[in-house]
Design a protein around this nucleic acid. Sequence first.
DNA 1: TATAAAATAGCGATTTTGGGTGATGCAGTC
DNA 2: GACTGCATCACCCAAAATCGCTATTTTATA
Lengths: 211, 211
Amino acid sequence: MIRVAIFEDNKHLRETYEILLSISDQTQCVGSFPDGRNAVAKLKNTACDVILMDIEMPNVNGIEATTAIKKEFPQIHILIQTAFFDDEYIFHALCAGASGYLLKSTKPEGIIDAILEVVSGGSPMTPSIARKVIDLFKSNVQIRQTSEYNLTNQEKKVLQLLVDGKSYKMIATELFVSIDTIKSHMRNIYAKLHVHSGTEAVALALREKIV
Amino acid sequence: MIRVAIFEDNKHLRETYEILLSISDQTQCVGSFPDGRNAVAKLKNTACDVILMDIEMPNVNGIEATTAIKKEFPQIHILIQTAFFDDEYIFHALCAGASGYLLKSTKPEGIIDAILEVVSGGSPMTPSIARKVIDLFKSNVQIRQTSEYNLTNQEKKVLQLLVDGKSYKMIATELFVSIDTIKSHMRNIYAKLHVHSGTEAVALALREKIV
DNA sequence: TATAAAATAGCGATTTTGGGTGATGCAGTC
DNA sequence: GACTGCATCACCCAAAATCGCTATTTTATA
Protein backbone atom coordinates (compact mmCIF):
# COMPACT_ATOMS: atom_id res chain seq x y z
CA MET A 1 0.00 0.00 0.00
CA ILE A 2 1.56 3.27 -1.12
CA ARG A 3 0.96 6.17 1.24
CA VAL A 4 0.29 9.39 -0.63
CA ALA A 5 -0.17 12.99 0.52
CA ILE A 6 -1.73 15.79 -1.51
CA PHE A 7 -0.85 19.49 -1.69
CA GLU A 8 -3.36 21.26 -3.90
CA ASP A 9 -5.13 24.57 -3.39
CA ASN A 10 -8.12 23.75 -5.56
CA LYS A 11 -10.64 22.12 -3.23
CA HIS A 12 -12.48 20.29 -5.98
CA LEU A 13 -9.31 18.87 -7.48
CA ARG A 14 -7.99 17.93 -4.05
CA GLU A 15 -11.10 15.93 -3.30
CA THR A 16 -10.94 14.30 -6.70
CA TYR A 17 -7.43 13.11 -5.92
CA GLU A 18 -8.50 11.85 -2.52
CA ILE A 19 -11.23 9.76 -4.08
CA LEU A 20 -8.90 8.56 -6.78
CA LEU A 21 -6.34 7.39 -4.23
CA SER A 22 -9.00 5.64 -2.17
CA ILE A 23 -10.43 3.81 -5.16
CA SER A 24 -7.14 2.24 -6.12
CA ASP A 25 -6.26 -0.69 -3.91
CA GLN A 26 -2.56 0.13 -4.18
CA THR A 27 -2.73 3.65 -2.81
CA GLN A 28 -3.92 5.32 0.32
CA CYS A 29 -4.32 9.02 1.05
CA VAL A 30 -2.58 10.03 4.27
CA GLY A 31 -2.99 13.78 4.08
CA SER A 32 -4.45 16.52 1.98
CA PHE A 33 -3.52 20.20 2.29
CA PRO A 34 -4.43 23.43 0.49
CA ASP A 35 -0.96 25.00 0.61
CA GLY A 36 2.65 24.33 1.51
CA ARG A 37 2.73 25.96 4.92
CA ASN A 38 4.36 23.81 7.59
CA ALA A 39 4.59 20.96 5.13
CA VAL A 40 7.29 19.23 7.13
CA ALA A 41 5.28 19.34 10.34
CA LYS A 42 2.17 18.12 8.55
CA LEU A 43 4.02 15.12 7.20
CA LYS A 44 5.76 14.24 10.46
CA ASN A 45 3.65 11.25 11.39
CA THR A 46 2.24 10.21 8.05
CA ALA A 47 5.14 7.98 6.93
CA CYS A 48 4.14 8.90 3.43
CA ASP A 49 5.90 7.61 0.33
CA VAL A 50 4.71 9.91 -2.40
CA ILE A 51 3.41 13.46 -2.59
CA LEU A 52 1.26 14.98 -5.29
CA MET A 53 2.41 18.58 -5.28
CA ASP A 54 0.76 21.49 -7.04
CA ILE A 55 3.10 24.36 -7.90
CA GLU A 56 0.72 27.29 -7.89
CA MET A 57 -0.47 27.54 -4.30
CA PRO A 58 -1.00 30.51 -2.00
CA ASN A 59 1.33 31.34 0.91
CA VAL A 60 3.97 28.66 0.34
CA ASN A 61 4.16 27.33 -3.19
CA GLY A 62 5.00 23.84 -4.38
CA ILE A 63 8.64 24.53 -5.15
CA GLU A 64 9.32 25.90 -1.69
CA ALA A 65 7.43 23.06 -0.08
CA THR A 66 9.35 20.53 -2.16
CA THR A 67 12.66 22.00 -1.07
CA ALA A 68 11.65 21.86 2.58
CA ILE A 69 10.23 18.36 2.39
CA LYS A 70 13.18 16.92 0.52
CA LYS A 71 15.53 18.40 3.07
CA GLU A 72 13.73 16.68 5.92
CA PHE A 73 12.47 13.54 4.18
CA PRO A 74 14.77 12.86 1.23
CA GLN A 75 13.24 9.45 0.63
CA ILE A 76 9.82 10.84 -0.23
CA HIS A 77 9.04 10.96 -3.94
CA ILE A 78 7.47 14.20 -5.02
CA LEU A 79 5.33 14.40 -8.14
CA ILE A 80 4.90 17.95 -9.33
CA GLN A 81 1.59 18.83 -10.91
CA THR A 82 0.98 21.99 -12.78
CA ALA A 83 -1.28 23.45 -15.38
CA PHE A 84 1.59 25.22 -17.13
CA PHE A 85 4.94 24.00 -18.15
CA ASP A 86 7.29 26.82 -17.77
CA ASP A 87 11.06 26.37 -18.09
CA GLU A 88 11.67 28.15 -14.83
CA TYR A 89 9.19 26.01 -12.97
CA ILE A 90 10.72 22.84 -14.28
CA PHE A 91 14.23 24.00 -13.56
CA HIS A 92 13.43 24.96 -10.01
CA ALA A 93 11.33 21.89 -9.39
CA LEU A 94 14.19 19.65 -10.49
CA CYS A 95 16.65 21.55 -8.34
CA ALA A 96 14.27 21.27 -5.41
CA GLY A 97 14.30 17.52 -5.81
CA ALA A 98 11.11 16.63 -7.66
CA SER A 99 11.00 13.08 -9.01
CA GLY A 100 8.33 13.53 -11.62
CA TYR A 101 6.40 16.20 -13.41
CA LEU A 102 2.80 15.78 -14.48
CA LEU A 103 0.49 18.08 -16.29
CA LYS A 104 -2.94 18.65 -14.78
CA SER A 105 -4.40 17.36 -17.98
CA THR A 106 -3.16 13.91 -16.96
CA LYS A 107 -6.01 11.41 -16.71
CA PRO A 108 -6.84 9.77 -13.35
CA GLU A 109 -5.36 6.42 -14.28
CA GLY A 110 -2.27 8.24 -15.46
CA ILE A 111 -1.83 9.64 -11.98
CA ILE A 112 -2.01 6.24 -10.37
CA ASP A 113 0.43 4.92 -12.98
CA ALA A 114 2.79 7.77 -12.24
CA ILE A 115 2.66 7.02 -8.51
CA LEU A 116 3.50 3.39 -9.19
CA GLU A 117 6.31 4.42 -11.53
CA VAL A 118 7.85 6.79 -9.07
CA VAL A 119 7.97 4.30 -6.22
CA SER A 120 9.66 1.81 -8.51
CA GLY A 121 12.40 4.33 -9.22
CA GLY A 122 11.19 6.06 -12.35
CA SER A 123 10.46 9.67 -13.11
CA PRO A 124 7.17 9.91 -14.91
CA MET A 125 6.72 12.94 -17.08
CA THR A 126 5.04 13.82 -20.32
CA PRO A 127 7.19 13.81 -23.46
CA SER A 128 6.79 17.58 -23.71
CA ILE A 129 8.17 18.02 -20.20
CA ALA A 130 10.92 15.56 -20.97
CA ARG A 131 11.95 17.66 -23.92
CA LYS A 132 12.32 20.66 -21.71
CA VAL A 133 14.35 18.69 -19.21
CA ILE A 134 16.66 17.60 -21.99
CA ASP A 135 17.01 21.16 -23.19
CA LEU A 136 17.83 22.28 -19.67
CA PHE A 137 20.35 19.50 -19.41
CA LYS A 138 22.05 20.46 -22.62
CA SER A 139 22.19 24.13 -21.70
CA ASN A 140 23.90 23.12 -18.47
CA VAL A 141 26.45 20.79 -19.97
CA GLN A 142 29.44 22.70 -21.07
CA ILE A 143 30.93 21.69 -24.35
CA ARG A 144 34.14 20.16 -23.13
CA GLN A 145 35.50 18.75 -26.31
CA THR A 146 35.33 21.84 -28.50
CA SER A 147 38.50 23.68 -27.75
CA GLU A 148 41.87 22.79 -26.40
CA TYR A 149 43.44 26.04 -27.52
CA ASN A 150 46.72 24.14 -27.74
CA LEU A 151 47.82 25.22 -24.30
CA THR A 152 51.03 23.56 -23.18
CA ASN A 153 51.16 21.71 -19.88
CA GLN A 154 52.90 24.51 -18.12
CA GLU A 155 50.46 27.02 -19.51
CA LYS A 156 47.59 24.92 -18.25
CA LYS A 157 49.13 24.83 -14.79
CA VAL A 158 49.56 28.58 -14.79
CA LEU A 159 45.99 29.09 -15.95
CA GLN A 160 44.74 26.70 -13.30
CA LEU A 161 46.53 28.61 -10.58
CA LEU A 162 45.23 31.86 -11.98
CA VAL A 163 41.72 30.45 -11.78
CA ASP A 164 42.47 29.56 -8.18
CA GLY A 165 42.93 33.27 -7.57
CA LYS A 166 46.71 33.31 -7.33
CA SER A 167 48.82 36.30 -8.35
CA TYR A 168 51.77 36.08 -10.73
CA LYS A 169 54.11 36.11 -7.76
CA MET A 170 52.32 33.27 -6.00
CA ILE A 171 52.18 31.23 -9.19
CA ALA A 172 55.90 31.76 -9.71
CA THR A 173 56.63 30.57 -6.19
CA GLU A 174 54.37 27.58 -6.56
CA LEU A 175 55.96 26.49 -9.81
CA PHE A 176 59.53 27.31 -8.71
CA VAL A 177 60.16 29.74 -11.54
CA SER A 178 60.69 33.48 -11.78
CA ILE A 179 57.86 35.92 -12.06
CA ASP A 180 59.06 36.90 -15.50
CA THR A 181 58.51 33.37 -16.67
CA ILE A 182 54.94 33.57 -15.51
CA LYS A 183 54.60 36.81 -17.41
CA SER A 184 55.84 35.02 -20.49
CA HIS A 185 53.39 32.21 -20.04
CA MET A 186 50.56 34.65 -19.50
CA ARG A 187 51.44 36.43 -22.73
CA ASN A 188 51.27 33.14 -24.57
CA ILE A 189 48.05 32.12 -22.86
CA TYR A 190 46.38 35.41 -23.75
CA ALA A 191 47.45 35.03 -27.35
CA LYS A 192 46.12 31.49 -27.55
CA LEU A 193 42.83 32.26 -25.86
CA HIS A 194 42.43 35.58 -27.66
CA VAL A 195 41.88 37.47 -24.41
CA HIS A 196 43.59 40.45 -22.86
CA SER A 197 43.17 40.08 -19.12
CA GLY A 198 43.21 37.58 -16.34
CA THR A 199 39.52 37.89 -15.68
CA GLU A 200 38.72 37.13 -19.30
CA ALA A 201 41.03 34.15 -19.27
CA VAL A 202 39.48 32.80 -16.08
CA ALA A 203 35.97 33.30 -17.38
CA LEU A 204 36.81 31.49 -20.59
CA ALA A 205 38.66 28.74 -18.79
CA LEU A 206 35.78 28.08 -16.43
CA ARG A 207 33.17 28.30 -19.12
CA GLU A 208 34.54 25.88 -21.61
CA LYS A 209 37.60 24.13 -20.45
CA ILE A 210 39.38 22.38 -17.71
CA VAL A 211 39.22 23.42 -14.06
CA MET B 1 2.96 11.29 -43.44
CA ILE B 2 6.02 11.06 -41.21
CA ARG B 3 9.15 9.88 -42.97
CA VAL B 4 11.18 7.56 -40.78
CA ALA B 5 14.60 5.95 -41.24
CA ILE B 6 15.93 2.98 -39.28
CA PHE B 7 19.45 2.22 -38.05
CA GLU B 8 19.50 -1.19 -36.45
CA ASP B 9 22.00 -4.01 -36.80
CA ASN B 10 19.62 -6.82 -35.92
CA LYS B 11 18.10 -7.88 -39.20
CA HIS B 12 15.00 -9.37 -37.66
CA LEU B 13 14.28 -6.32 -35.58
CA ARG B 14 14.99 -4.03 -38.49
CA GLU B 15 12.41 -5.79 -40.60
CA THR B 16 9.94 -5.74 -37.77
CA TYR B 17 10.27 -1.98 -37.60
CA GLU B 18 9.89 -1.65 -41.35
CA ILE B 19 6.64 -3.57 -41.23
CA LEU B 20 5.46 -1.60 -38.24
CA LEU B 21 6.07 1.70 -40.02
CA SER B 22 4.30 0.51 -43.14
CA ILE B 23 1.27 -0.68 -41.20
CA SER B 24 0.65 2.70 -39.60
CA ASP B 25 -0.98 5.13 -41.97
CA GLN B 26 0.90 8.04 -40.39
CA THR B 27 4.39 6.76 -40.95
CA GLN B 28 6.49 5.69 -43.87
CA CYS B 29 9.88 3.99 -43.91
CA VAL B 30 12.36 5.84 -46.11
CA GLY B 31 15.51 3.92 -45.27
CA SER B 32 16.80 1.03 -43.22
CA PHE B 33 20.46 0.44 -42.44
CA PRO B 34 22.46 -2.07 -40.40
CA ASP B 35 25.05 0.38 -39.06
CA GLY B 36 25.94 4.07 -38.86
CA ARG B 37 28.50 4.21 -41.63
CA ASN B 38 27.97 7.11 -44.02
CA ALA B 39 24.74 7.94 -42.29
CA VAL B 40 24.71 11.49 -43.63
CA ALA B 41 25.16 10.34 -47.22
CA LYS B 42 22.50 7.68 -46.83
CA LEU B 43 20.00 10.26 -45.62
CA LYS B 44 20.82 12.86 -48.25
CA ASN B 45 17.78 12.41 -50.41
CA THR B 46 15.33 10.86 -48.00
CA ALA B 47 13.94 14.09 -46.51
CA CYS B 48 13.33 12.07 -43.41
CA ASP B 49 11.76 13.49 -40.25
CA VAL B 50 12.55 10.90 -37.61
CA ILE B 51 15.21 8.26 -37.12
CA LEU B 52 15.00 5.14 -35.00
CA MET B 53 18.58 4.70 -33.88
CA ASP B 54 20.04 1.69 -32.18
CA ILE B 55 23.09 2.39 -30.03
CA GLU B 56 24.91 -0.91 -30.19
CA MET B 57 25.90 -1.27 -33.82
CA PRO B 58 29.10 -2.46 -35.50
CA ASN B 59 31.54 -0.10 -37.24
CA VAL B 60 29.85 3.21 -36.43
CA ASN B 61 27.59 3.15 -33.39
CA GLY B 62 24.38 5.06 -32.78
CA ILE B 63 25.95 7.85 -30.75
CA GLU B 64 28.49 8.65 -33.42
CA ALA B 65 25.87 8.46 -36.12
CA THR B 66 23.58 10.75 -34.13
CA THR B 67 26.32 13.33 -33.75
CA ALA B 68 27.03 13.28 -37.47
CA ILE B 69 23.40 13.41 -38.50
CA LYS B 70 22.49 16.20 -36.12
CA LYS B 71 25.39 18.25 -37.41
CA GLU B 72 24.19 17.95 -40.97
CA PHE B 73 20.42 17.75 -40.43
CA PRO B 74 19.64 19.43 -37.11
CA GLN B 75 15.90 19.32 -37.76
CA ILE B 76 15.75 15.53 -37.78
CA HIS B 77 14.42 13.98 -34.58
CA ILE B 78 16.43 11.03 -33.41
CA LEU B 79 14.91 8.37 -31.19
CA ILE B 80 17.53 6.29 -29.48
CA GLN B 81 16.71 2.66 -28.88
CA THR B 82 18.73 0.42 -26.70
CA ALA B 83 18.45 -2.74 -24.70
CA PHE B 84 20.41 -1.30 -21.78
CA PHE B 85 20.08 1.96 -20.04
CA ASP B 86 23.50 2.98 -19.05
CA ASP B 87 24.23 6.44 -17.63
CA GLU B 88 27.08 6.97 -20.04
CA TYR B 89 24.95 6.05 -23.03
CA ILE B 90 22.22 8.41 -22.00
CA PHE B 91 24.63 11.22 -21.29
CA HIS B 92 26.36 10.89 -24.63
CA ALA B 93 23.13 10.40 -26.51
CA LEU B 94 21.73 13.60 -25.08
CA CYS B 95 24.92 15.48 -25.86
CA ALA B 96 24.83 14.11 -29.39
CA GLY B 97 21.36 15.57 -29.80
CA ALA B 98 18.95 12.71 -29.30
CA SER B 99 15.32 13.76 -28.84
CA GLY B 100 14.01 10.64 -27.18
CA TYR B 101 15.18 7.46 -25.61
CA LEU B 102 13.27 4.20 -25.87
CA LEU B 103 13.96 0.80 -24.45
CA LYS B 104 13.83 -2.13 -26.82
CA SER B 105 11.17 -3.60 -24.60
CA THR B 106 8.85 -0.89 -25.89
CA LYS B 107 5.78 -2.34 -27.55
CA PRO B 108 5.11 -1.69 -31.26
CA GLU B 109 2.30 0.77 -30.63
CA GLY B 110 4.61 2.53 -28.16
CA ILE B 111 7.11 3.12 -30.94
CA ILE B 112 4.52 4.68 -33.21
CA ASP B 113 3.32 6.81 -30.31
CA ALA B 114 6.88 7.92 -29.63
CA ILE B 115 7.35 8.92 -33.25
CA LEU B 116 4.19 11.00 -33.13
CA GLU B 117 5.29 12.57 -29.85
CA VAL B 118 8.68 13.52 -31.12
CA VAL B 119 7.42 15.25 -34.24
CA SER B 120 5.04 17.26 -32.11
CA GLY B 121 7.94 18.53 -30.05
CA GLY B 122 8.08 16.08 -27.19
CA SER B 123 10.82 13.79 -25.98
CA PRO B 124 9.35 10.38 -25.31
CA MET B 125 11.21 8.28 -22.81
CA THR B 126 10.40 5.74 -20.17
CA PRO B 127 10.09 6.97 -16.59
CA SER B 128 13.22 5.04 -15.67
CA ILE B 129 15.20 6.82 -18.37
CA ALA B 130 13.68 10.11 -17.31
CA ARG B 131 14.93 9.54 -13.80
CA LYS B 132 18.43 9.11 -15.10
CA VAL B 133 18.16 12.26 -17.17
CA ILE B 134 17.05 14.16 -14.10
CA ASP B 135 19.94 12.77 -12.11
CA LEU B 136 22.34 13.78 -14.85
CA PHE B 137 20.78 17.21 -14.88
CA LYS B 138 21.16 17.64 -11.17
CA SER B 139 24.75 16.49 -11.18
CA ASN B 140 25.48 19.14 -13.78
CA VAL B 141 23.69 22.01 -12.13
CA GLN B 142 25.73 23.89 -9.65
CA ILE B 143 23.98 24.81 -6.45
CA ARG B 144 22.90 28.33 -7.19
CA GLN B 145 20.77 29.12 -4.20
CA THR B 146 23.38 28.57 -1.52
CA SER B 147 25.04 31.92 -1.48
CA GLU B 148 23.77 35.35 -2.33
CA TYR B 149 26.58 37.22 -0.61
CA ASN B 150 24.18 40.13 -0.27
CA LEU B 151 25.41 41.84 -3.38
CA THR B 152 23.38 44.89 -4.35
CA ASN B 153 21.93 45.18 -7.83
CA GLN B 154 24.62 47.51 -8.99
CA GLU B 155 27.32 45.30 -7.56
CA LYS B 156 25.85 42.34 -9.42
CA LYS B 157 25.91 44.31 -12.66
CA VAL B 158 29.52 45.24 -12.12
CA LEU B 159 30.46 41.67 -11.31
CA GLN B 160 28.61 40.43 -14.37
CA LEU B 161 30.53 42.81 -16.59
CA LEU B 162 33.77 41.82 -14.93
CA VAL B 163 32.95 38.19 -15.70
CA ASP B 164 32.35 39.24 -19.28
CA GLY B 165 35.98 40.29 -19.35
CA LYS B 166 35.48 44.03 -19.18
CA SER B 167 37.99 46.38 -17.57
CA TYR B 168 37.04 48.94 -14.94
CA LYS B 169 37.08 51.61 -17.60
CA MET B 170 34.76 49.68 -19.90
CA ILE B 171 32.41 48.87 -17.06
CA ALA B 172 32.29 52.53 -16.07
CA THR B 173 31.44 53.51 -19.64
CA GLU B 174 28.80 50.85 -19.92
CA LEU B 175 27.09 51.87 -16.69
CA PHE B 176 27.50 55.60 -17.30
CA VAL B 177 29.44 56.22 -14.09
CA SER B 178 32.98 57.21 -13.29
CA ILE B 179 35.79 54.72 -12.97
CA ASP B 180 36.16 55.61 -9.32
CA THR B 181 32.64 54.45 -8.72
CA ILE B 182 33.53 51.10 -10.24
CA LYS B 183 36.55 50.89 -8.00
CA SER B 184 34.30 51.60 -5.10
CA HIS B 185 31.92 48.84 -6.09
CA MET B 186 34.79 46.46 -6.63
CA ARG B 187 36.07 47.12 -3.14
CA ASN B 188 32.66 46.31 -1.75
CA ILE B 189 32.31 43.23 -3.90
CA TYR B 190 35.69 41.92 -2.81
CA ALA B 191 34.80 42.47 0.81
CA LYS B 192 31.52 40.63 0.44
CA LEU B 193 32.98 37.73 -1.50
CA HIS B 194 36.10 37.60 0.66
CA VAL B 195 38.40 37.79 -2.33
CA HIS B 196 41.21 40.12 -3.28
CA SER B 197 41.36 40.12 -7.05
CA GLY B 198 39.25 40.14 -10.14
CA THR B 199 40.25 36.65 -11.13
CA GLU B 200 39.20 35.29 -7.75
CA ALA B 201 35.91 37.11 -7.95
CA VAL B 202 35.22 35.82 -11.44
CA ALA B 203 36.14 32.27 -10.48
CA LEU B 204 33.84 32.41 -7.48
CA ALA B 205 31.05 34.06 -9.41
CA LEU B 206 31.16 31.45 -12.15
CA ARG B 207 31.48 28.57 -9.76
CA GLU B 208 28.60 29.22 -7.46
CA LYS B 209 26.55 32.18 -8.39
CA ILE B 210 24.94 34.22 -11.04
CA VAL B 211 26.20 34.48 -14.61
C1' DT C 1 71.77 15.27 -34.99
C1' DA C 2 69.29 19.02 -36.69
C1' DT C 3 65.23 21.30 -35.77
C1' DA C 4 61.26 22.89 -33.56
C1' DA C 5 58.65 23.62 -29.59
C1' DA C 6 58.48 24.63 -24.85
C1' DA C 7 60.09 26.59 -20.80
C1' DT C 8 62.81 29.72 -18.87
C1' DA C 9 64.34 34.59 -17.97
C1' DG C 10 65.14 39.67 -18.20
C1' DC C 11 64.20 44.71 -19.21
C1' DG C 12 61.34 48.68 -19.75
C1' DA C 13 57.13 51.29 -20.33
C1' DT C 14 52.45 51.86 -19.60
C1' DT C 15 48.07 50.67 -17.88
C1' DT C 16 45.21 48.56 -14.62
C1' DT C 17 44.24 47.23 -10.14
C1' DG C 18 43.60 47.21 -5.18
C1' DG C 19 43.23 49.84 -0.97
C1' DG C 20 42.94 53.85 1.99
C1' DT C 21 40.23 57.89 3.13
C1' DG C 22 36.65 60.85 2.72
C1' DA C 23 32.44 63.21 0.88
C1' DT C 24 27.79 63.94 -1.23
C1' DG C 25 22.94 63.01 -2.42
C1' DC C 26 19.02 60.12 -2.04
C1' DA C 27 15.70 56.77 -0.22
C1' DG C 28 13.77 54.48 3.29
C1' DT C 29 13.05 53.73 8.32
C1' DC C 30 12.65 54.28 13.18
C1' DG D 1 14.97 64.60 12.44
C1' DA D 2 18.53 61.09 13.03
C1' DC D 3 20.18 57.02 11.14
C1' DT D 4 21.37 53.69 7.70
C1' DG D 5 22.31 51.66 3.24
C1' DC D 6 23.25 52.50 -1.44
C1' DA D 7 25.27 54.70 -5.23
C1' DT D 8 28.07 58.07 -6.61
C1' DC D 9 32.65 60.52 -7.09
C1' DA D 10 37.50 62.09 -5.94
C1' DC D 11 42.45 61.82 -4.90
C1' DC D 12 46.46 59.33 -3.74
C1' DC D 13 49.71 55.61 -3.82
C1' DA D 14 51.74 51.24 -4.37
C1' DA D 15 51.40 46.86 -6.26
C1' DA D 16 50.14 44.06 -10.00
C1' DA D 17 49.38 43.20 -14.50
C1' DT D 18 49.92 43.91 -19.46
C1' DC D 19 52.68 44.23 -23.50
C1' DG D 20 56.75 44.41 -26.51
C1' DC D 21 61.23 42.69 -27.46
C1' DT D 22 64.96 39.69 -26.84
C1' DA D 23 67.39 35.59 -25.58
C1' DT D 24 69.01 31.21 -23.43
C1' DT D 25 68.35 26.43 -22.01
C1' DT D 26 65.75 22.13 -22.17
C1' DT D 27 63.06 18.79 -24.27
C1' DA D 28 60.90 16.33 -27.77
C1' DT D 29 61.13 14.38 -32.06
C1' DA D 30 61.60 13.83 -36.94
